[in-house]
Amino acid sequence: MFKFGKDEVKCSGCRACELICALHNKKECNPKEAFIKISGNFPEPGGYDMKILRGCTLCGECIRICPTGAVFEKPVKEAQ
């Protein structure tokens, strides 16, 4: 078991996490089917919000694909 760690400052909004989630968990090639949701705050102030939605299977696929380390695994004992 793990808990999610999020570092939104690192997130570049690539949505690779959304896509792999939808592919892995639903066999759908469309990021809208994902249990992780990235949304941008543009034009101001910039940056992204990340949300884990109900239904997440804790498969960790998003963590493994993320190229920036914006989603990561936190050991359960450390998580608040």
């Binding site: 400052v9 690192k10 570049s12 909004g13 690539c14 949505r15 690779a16 896509l19 543009f42 102030p45 910039g46 940056g47 992204y48 190229p67 920036t68």
Partner: peptide
């Protein structure tokens, strides 16, 4: 630069968001 900004599924994120 205040943030990196990527295109769809791109690990490089060459977009640099600035203020």
């Amino acid at each position: 630069v205040i943030h990196n900004k990527a295109c769809f599924s791109c690990p490089m994120a060459c977009g640099k968001y600035s203020k």
